[in-house]
Computed example of a mutant assay.
Amino acid sequence: MANICPIKSPHKALILAEAYEHKEAYRPALNIYQSLVKNSEISLRVKINLGNVHFKLQNYPLAIKFYKMALDQVGQNKKNIYSKIMHNIGLAFIQQKQYSEAAFVFAYIIKESPDFRAYLHLILCWFALRKIAKIRRSFSDLFSLPKLDTKVEEIAKLIILISPLIEEVEEDGFNWCVDVIRITDYAWMADNLEIARIVELMRKGNLAEALKFLQKFEMNVKHLTENSRINLSFVYLHLKKLEQVENLLKGCTKPKAYNNYGVLKFLQKDYIAAEKAFHIANDSKEEIYEASYNLGLVQRKLGDRKQSQEIYDTILKQYPFPYNLMMFGLSNINDPGVLRNIAKLYKNLSNYKMAKWFFEEAFAVNPLY
């Protein structure tokens, strides 16, 4: 069939190919990219895009080939672009379980333009290779960065992963990591990481261990960010230490703080105050799923069953599974522990299709959970 409206401009062809790629129509995208790869004006962008498409198609050797072609063209003078392409090469090696090659790539990035992601993936490579000394060295070097573009939660997940490997006793591994951080410019993270460990243990149902670390933490607490105060209030809510919850939440203005405050008032049977707090959390720009559920719960307590049912109907339309988040302790829908708990609930209800879906989601979020 003749091409009725041929695309003469390579720039227009590139836009079309990127549109195909965005729509996940990878074959037509590849065809156009291949026709443009020798065009000197746009060849760098085309080679990077070819690498990206082959990566998405899991053709990792081809992805690496095109990324390397792009590297040859961009040169090391443009460090930012060079580093990003190198990072993609490292990820392609990881996907092929070529961890030594990936580690070489990430070590190079760190030498030239270090950042958190490069350190994270380097540590994960050393973890896969069981190189304990190199894990320790890279972890220590990570906190020499002038700026960490990450959240405490990500650091916590990394520590939880490596702790059982770097020491014979997991607790000793965790303590070693926290001690490293305490003597850096990121010392403020240490207390927040302790809280993250306690919350993780509680979500896994290991209450005895959580209490042990909580008692130790209470004796040594120093600096707390608002997020940490909110997380710690979550711990105290489950322990029914309501006075501590109220003190921790004073001055907190984030939606999750209002949700926890609403739970506090609910437990104190002050349903009017609880309703007000859940409304504030629910009306925020953030999606606080538990606030919606809890609002329905408190309105049922206040006798407004119609409004309560409308809230639950809305939740079920948006999320086709039960969100009793006070029960599960859910903080976000990417929590593998919560996803597994929901899967178990569906299994108990003999809804094996939904159970399978949630188990797979939990695995996708964190295969090691």
Score class of each variant (00 low, 15 high):
I4H: 11
P10D: 00
A17G: 07
E21Y: 07
A25Y: 14
N31K: 13
N31D: 15
K38P: 02
I42N: 08
S43K: 13
K56P: 03
P61K: 07
K65S: 10
F66I: 01
L71W: 04
Q76Y: 06
K79F: 04
Y82D: 02
I89E: 01
L91E: 10
F93P: 00
Q96N: 03
Q98H: 05
E101G: 00
A107Y: 06
S113I: 07
A118P: 01
Y119H: 13
H121D: 11
H121C: 04
L124K: 12
I135P: 01
D141A: 13
K151H: 14
V152S: 13
E153P: 00
K157P: 04
I160Y: 09
L161I: 09
L165G: 00
E170N: 10
E170W: 03
C177F: 07
T184C: 03
D185E: 14
L193G: 07
L207Q: 11
K216T: 13
F217K: 06
M219L: 15
L224W: 08
T225N: 12
E226R: 08
R229T: 05
R229N: 04
I230G: 06
I230M: 03
Y236K: 04
Y236E: 08
V245F: 10
T253A: 14
P255W: 11
N259A: 08
Y261F: 14
K265P: 01
K269Y: 08
A273E: 13
K276M: 11
H279G: 04
A291L: 10
G296N: 08
V298F: 02
E310R: 12
D313Y: 07
L316G: 00
K317G: 09
P322S: 13
L325Q: 02
L325W: 01
M326R: 08
G329S: 07
S331K: 09
N332L: 06
R340M: 02
I342D: 00
A343F: 01
A343T: 02
K344W: 03
Y352K: 11
Y352S: 10
W357S: 12
